[in-house]
Design a protein around this nucleic acid. Sequence first.
DNA 1: GCATGAAATTGACGTAACGTCATTTTTGTG
DNA 2: CACAAAAATGACGTTACGTCAATTTCATGC
Lengths: 206, 206
Amino acid sequence: MTDALALEPVGKREKTKAANRLAILAAAREVFAQLGYEAATVRDIIRGTQLASGTFYNYFKSKEEVYEALADDGARRFRPILRMARENARSFEDYLHSAFVAYFQFIVADNRTEGRPIDERRPHVLRMDTPEMMAVYQEVRQSLEEAVARGDAPRVDADYLACACIGTAQEVGAEMLRRSPPDIDAAARFVTGLLLNGLQGAARKS
Amino acid sequence: MTDALALEPVGKREKTKAANRLAILAAAREVFAQLGYEAATVRDIIRGTQLASGTFYNYFKSKEEVYEALADDGARRFRPILRMARENARSFEDYLHSAFVAYFQFIVADNRTEGRPIDERRPHVLRMDTPEMMAVYQEVRQSLEEAVARGDAPRVDADYLACACIGTAQEVGAEMLRRSPPDIDAAARFVTGLLLNGLQGAARKS
DNA sequence: GCATGAAATTGACGTAACGTCATTTTTGTG
DNA sequence: CACAAAAATGACGTTACGTCAATTTCATGC
């Protein structure tokens, strides 16, 4: 019974590796927030950790890769939230609305730290092609395809529709963040109505 | 009468300055396409011109600023096209459709050169607020506000709606570019229908 | 425990890009 | 043609990059 299922790393090797990776990501998050992504250098990130410069390159090979890892982690955290929104939804409209609420809540929570303007630090650009981000895209696309199959939505190009949902969520979300305080539910209602019923739908309850 | 209205630069000074600026922008466009934006360096751009390194810094202070200038130029070229779409439109639906057609034509034309995948040619992070891009945003917003005022569209949050239009156009446009051959009219019909009538509208004629 | 080697860390180093600035060249003007 | 303002030049000091041989840390078998 000494070696139970090792879901989490137990050896010291594995543990420091995980800790270093986390330290780099945390430092990068901070540096991007303070200096902005463009101005930040690999050296700035390294200085934010206790590690030697060479060690950094055992984990990532560039600033871009660090950024990708941050984005990937964000997507990894968001995906189960999205999944639950799908599973708990009592209708298609309900699914759309709760998915948008979830996304808007997510970006609000993800941008609480002080620092540079949000646009300069790190993207919520779902465009990047990290594995987890593609998985999020597929999650969205499948939800929409299922809705079509169930007859909840008309037959449309699922890829275009997924792109439209994601693009709308991103831009409206960014605009929502610029307002204070951000009204998550109003934004979600707007987007849901727009997608379901077009401009007529978007005008509901506003 | 020696000095008539000098709309275009005539002095040699002004002329070489304009030419140098153009040379830098052209070189940058090529370099971004070949190496990708992230990998490109200021020196790479300089090597693509006949200029000395110091000269570059008389015109731009960084790679980011060059990209901004490229983006700004794109917006400057696009704005009159959008304006004409508005003026020539016979209905709101017609305006939306022709505006989207114009945008999709524009991005198709703007990405004809061979090289790296399009996503890599531009910065990942920067959400750019160049003057011309903001002008395009205002142009879109005003068109939508006018439509509301005329009763062509219901009363909605014009900023959110503009964001939704732009976000949708960007994402669907990017997806369209990934397909070959890109079907501009199909994409425009999809987006127009979606915005006007929601999912029901998006399903029309597909 | 202790020996042993694999794995990870370290930081100094050669390379390359950065941005500046004193100098030179070019252009407009009287 | 002379003179000053403007622009171009490229060498230079500085900073960041990414590598790698040396060193330290850890897991494993005895």
